[in-house]
Nucleic acid binder design. Structure first.
Lengths: 334, 334
DNA sequence: CTGAAAGCGCTTACAG
DNA sequence: CTGAAAGCGCTTACAG
């Protein structure tokens, strides 16, 4: 591969000048700039980025840690992140943690080894030691999106999970439901706790706390199906509505209801969370809570880049959600 | 950050020895190795990978180009690729091309700039110039998975698309179907052409060529729904079965059938392709063709790494598919 | 088994 | 506006 030396030789100038023509063209005369451009084209030069990174002590890459890349919820967030990152000259390395904190740890190693300049956390399934470390003073830029930690106040962009849950439950109550169950994600997950809190608060506001019933899933189809079967077990008093913490689980519940011969929404209303593409194509189409996923990705990346530049930033950004009413919810049959 | 010099000072040896203790521990005495290990722990040393990469003229990263990260088909392939890559000390950078060849081009730039050592192509939507270039002699390691180019013989791991299509159509014919339509992916896509060829060949073998009917989608839900409506338009002779080139499109067809009041599989059988997680949770559960996705990812990465090491490799690997019969197919009603 | 030294390809104060 | 020179942090023949 040709190097900057080759370009300098062909252009008849020093390597310093070639470097400047590339990095700060305004510091170079028009004629020189043109000669350099020509020389670059002639020799087919491409800068060695490893050398540049070494010299500048940066990597121009951001790692984005996901809990599970197979969850379609994240793809639009990734798009948003990348749009902003690319414009700023950064690339993003996607780290799929597969719900395994050990894998997250490996990705954190990219920071001290100068392979990444910052981390965007889309999962809280990360060893707390690492997070505290990064949050310490001689630390690495770290931003959370969607999720958060109960006891560490990191820069975050997310929705108001409590409010979104209230909204969903209020809606179900307004339809006439009283026995409303929640199919939560992992109980330890702070965002699930927030949603459960919103669920409880809203039931309480309507004097329905005695009707509360919560089961736990893992956000996936299968757990939705299994917990759906448990919740709808024949012979027991069934809920007339289930608020699910993910669309996949809601779709699993739909399958369970079908199997048990329950009409949706006549005998059972189901609300999902996230508004993934599939939610419009299941039967019946799913009522769900939509998050501004692209915007979450964009804002999180802007926040991280701002932090890295030492700019003043809004450390806590809350974006709004929307209840999308489709066909899986309705008045309970008398 | 502490550097190798700091470690050397604390361990009382040269930087060369520290480097060896890390890279080739067997070339260093036991006592030295221990002292170095202790010094590394004491100073909190992490090697600067940019410096190492510069010196070794490699990046230890592979870029994997996807047509569309929101397609859940790819997540398991990515897992397979990463398993193999990580074991070999490589990281994988996922490049989401969003069906835009221009974005693919940007990722190809990572090669000459020493930011990536090889490319794994999971899409054929890439400027041909780049591929020919990479395939030329002073070239970059390049492997295709799943897809392929009609006129360039790159190292590839994929399924036999022709055979898989034959299998699906044979099955439908064995159920008694005669009017079988195909909902293809983009017509220009070589894998779709292969599947269409299999479709035609099988119809021909049964004297059904006159019944052939092909429409084109883009693999997504929406196009499946729209083309489904077109194919099933009331008042025209309808197909009794539709073979779709993706599960998402098949699920779109299911929605179209529902809307038109057609019973599946009684009045319409539907076959998908890929066996994504969703295919078990739609209504009815989808009959589909399963690809060994994890294995495709693994083999493709092994092939690429083998190529990079100059090992002898099998340049063309064909993995087998499986027809998963579920509830969306059956005998046509009389 | 170990060290001194060169060099990977850039960038950037410094001096002019 | 331009160049000479130092240096980023490693690795690796070479010599011993």
């Amino acid at each position: 591969m040709p190097t900057i030396k080759d370009v300098a030789r062909v252009a008849g100038c020093s390597t310093a000048t070639v470097s400047r023509a590339l990095a700060t063209p305004e510091k170079v005369s028009d004629t020189t700039r043109e000669r350099v451009a020509q020389a670059i084209a002639d020799v087919g030069y491409a800068p060695n980025v490893a050398a540049r990174n070494l010299r500048r002590a940066e990597s121009k890459t951001i790692v984005a840690l996901l809990p599970d890349i197979s969850n379609p919820f994240f793809s639009e967030i990734i798009n948003g992140m990348e749009e902003v990152a690319h414009l700023a000259g950064y690339q993003v390395l996607i780290g799929d943690c597969e719900h395994d904190p050990a894998r997250a740890e490996a990705y954190f190693e990219l920071l001290p080894t100068n392979q990444a300049d910052g981390i965007l956390l889309l999962t809280a399934e990360v060893p707390m030691v690492l997070v505290r470390q990064a949050d310490g003073q001689s630390s690495f830029p770290l931003v959370m999106a969607c999720e958060f930690f109960a006891d560490i106040d990191l820069p975050t962009v997310a929705i108001d999970n409590h409010q979104a849950a209230c909204h969903a439950i209020d809606y179900l109550i307004s339809l006439g439901h009283r026995r409303i169950a929640t199919l939560s994600g992992p109980a330890a997950n702070p965002i699930c706790k927030e949603r459960v809190r919103g669920y409880h608060d809203t039931l309480a506001a309507h004097g329905l706390v005695a009707e509360a019933r919560i089961v736990e899933g893992d956000f996936g189809f299968r757990s939705g199906y299994q917990q759906g079967l448990a919740l709808l077990e024949p012979g027991r008093t069934r809920p007339t509505a289930i608020f699910c913490h993910s669309d996949e689980m809601a779709i699993g519940v739909l399958k369970a209801a079908r199997q048990l011969g329950l009409a949706v929404p006549g005998q059972l209303s189901v609300v999902g969370f996230d508004n993934i593409g599939f939610s419009e194509y299941c039967e019946p189409e799913l009522t769900t809570i939509s998050q501004p996923r692209n915007e979450i990705g964009q804002q999180a990346m802007r926040l991280l880049l701002g932090l890295m530049r030492g700019e003043p930033v809004v450390r806590r950004q809350t974006l709004s959600t929307q209840l999308i009413v489709r066909k899986s919810t309705g008045r309970p049959d008398a």
